[in-house]
Write a protein that binds this DNA or RNA. Structure first.
Lengths: 361, 361
DNA sequence: CTGAAAGCGCTTACAG
DNA sequence: CTGAAAGCGCTTACAG
């Protein structure tokens, strides 16, 4: 493709403001270095000429670069996948908020695609080598994630949205992350239902593929634990035993939510409310209670996705705008920490756990 | 942020291959200009050193630039909006496919956000001035879209995904577009239902805010017309009059789909199938026919979104991978046409209408 | 077919 | 506080 029109360059701004191009550069990047009057003159010229710095030139020359890469995924229906009603809601929204947060602070967010882990590693190398990204935001990390080694060996700053479940040490200074406290959300949901008068509050969640006492292993466990903890606080008679009787765990689908609610209704006809680990499960549960003429059972979902609004049930919002802001904060702080390896003091900044927000409906 | 590691540059490749940097550049960009043996040597060195060209340098120097911008939107639930179950499905998926198609051909897709048209214009200027994008892919264009004038005055090549409904001439060479033939899709759905034995086939769609005889004005009209045309072909007794009795038009929501189906069931208890303009409307219709114990009524949706899979109804897939490929093709051809203004011959390339695909379930 | 020179638009030292 | 010089890594003419 062709460059259409000769854009304004720093030279023209310098001429208009009657200073050198270095002074224009300084006025933009190091305002303190130039006299207020000069800066004024430069800023006026910039405004008058509608000047925007050429980012390619800046990035070529500068030590400071300012872009982070994040993967985007398809939500198309495929044979293998597309679990749930809108499985990609959180990731899509996160990418949106990250892009918006980046625009606010002059950080470019570049998206890339990859169909599997191997392709993604190729992409990461390409992005870093071509200087298209100097920081990576990972999503959906898995145990022994191969991407982590690659990034470490390339010495590229990275951060994950989501805790590295299964890692020996969730708070390793090697692995910065930002995450949302799911248990806080389901606990808040449980308390809200209690406050509305419900006492028999069940849970529909995801299967936990492995559990280790005293060590959280998955989002599935995280969300379940919030429900258990809140009920134990509210009702001393509620035990780990009781929990197992009042929960149904399965895969992420409307059908499983429906099935779960059916089982709960039959085993516990006196159930008054159900906390769900997702809006997809919640919709299933809602459709089942409705068709069983049990609309008295209150349903609460998770993610505050459009489906929760359409069907009018309460849900937990992850506040992804805050997550995105924190992600860029942490990535920046990680970068500066890498620069000063002696400064161990701020390691804790590298892990941010944010609270989600209950949206009552 | 800081550059971590000294990346391989063209100089090192040149040294390794024992040629000059120009020859390396030529081997990459103009393979025909170098002797096969030399090219081999260069390619081996590139491979051995894991070299990726610095895009900032390339873009700074080169006349050819290779990035297009596209807007991404939030799908979060807000007071004002978030219509339907997953209103952003098509746009999100389009952006994904555009990014993937771009990666295949070395075109970077940069995403930007904007809350309104005014903000978007600011963003477009910024993107173009900073040489971050030299082509724009617009989505959801409206009548008298203010973005069009801005892009025209900046002489930036652009294309819209979606026809400029309401424009005097849909095929103006000034406005390149790629779109999907919605009417083709609903006609295919109607024929499929007929083939399955249904004769009384109703339609639930969106309100058409204005209609002009002989001139299509909206996606709402486009999708409705496909249903009408197919039925007129299949059933000579079906008239414009009949159409008005067998359709319900409203806003995009599950509740409206439900309401539409309720009305159809009461006015036409013998209805056998319903074609819907969206998966959201289709879900509403499905829930209504199910709760009215009329599961014999076949429902067909539009977009082949995850909800159509979860609930197992047929739908129309827009084949967004093809749309994305066509978009990049057209944007490239538009660019080259701008370069040679005398070459009027290929104007028709600038408008591509693709056929969607019926997914039967 | 190959290479020496120039330069894209900036920022970074550094001299004044 | 300001400006002259150098150079980031490429591609583009152009000379040989």
């Amino acid at each position: 493709m062709t460059q259409k029109r000769q854009a304004t360059s720093i030279t023209q701004v310098a001429a208009a403001a009657q200073v050198s191009i270095q002074t224009v550069s300084n006025a933009i990047n190091y305002p303190d270095r130039v006299k207020p009057e000069t800066r004024q003159r430069v800023l006026q010229a910039i405004q008058a000429l509608d000047y925007t710095p050429n980012l390619a030139a800046r990035r070529l020359r500068s030590i400071h670069t300012t872009s982070v890469a994040v993967r985007i995924d398809s939500n198309a229906v495929t044979e293998s996948g597309a679990r749930g009603l809108y499985a990609g809601f959180i990731q899509d929204e996160f990418v949106y908020q990250l892009t918006a947060a980046g625009e606010r602070r002059g950080v470019k967010v570049v998206a890339y695609t990859a169909e599997d882990s191997e392709q993604e590693i190729t992409q990461l190398k390409r992005l870093v080598n071509s200087r298209d990204a100097d920081g990576i935001v990972l999503t959906s990390t898995v145990e022994n994630d191969p991407r982590l080694d690659v990034l470490a060996s390339m010495r590229v700053p990275f951060l994950s949205f989501g805790r590295p479940w299964g890692a020996e040490n969730l708070y390793s200074p090697e692995h910065a992350w930002v995450d949302v406290d799911g248990g806080f959300g389901t606990a808040a949901a449980t308390r809200m239902l209690w406050a509305r008068g419900a006492r028999r509050i069940a849970f529909i969640g995801w299967v936990m593929h492995r559990t280790v006492p005293g060590r959280m292993q998955s989002t599935a466990e995280d969300r379940r634990v919030g429900w258990v903890k809140a009920l134990r606080e509210l009702n001393p008679a509620f035990t780990a035993m009781t929990a197992r009787k009042w929960e149904v765990l399965g895969e992420e689908s409307v059908a499983k939510g429906r099935e779960g609610a059916r089982r709960l209704l039959s085993q516990h006809p006196d159930v008054e409310a159900i906390v769900c680990a997702s809006d997809t499960l919640a919709l299933g549960a809602l459709l089942e209670t409705t068709s069983a003429a049990r609309s008295d059972v209150i349903i609460c979902g998770f993610d505050n996705s459009p489906v929760s609004k359409e069907f009018g049930f309460s849900s937990i919002d992850q506040n992804l705008d805050q997550v995105a802001d924190a992600a860029l904060d942490v990535l920046t702080s990680v970068t500066s920490r890498v620069r000063r390896p002696t400064d161990q003091g701020q390691a804790e900044v590298a892990h941010v756990l944010l609270q989600p927000q209950l949206i009552e409906r």
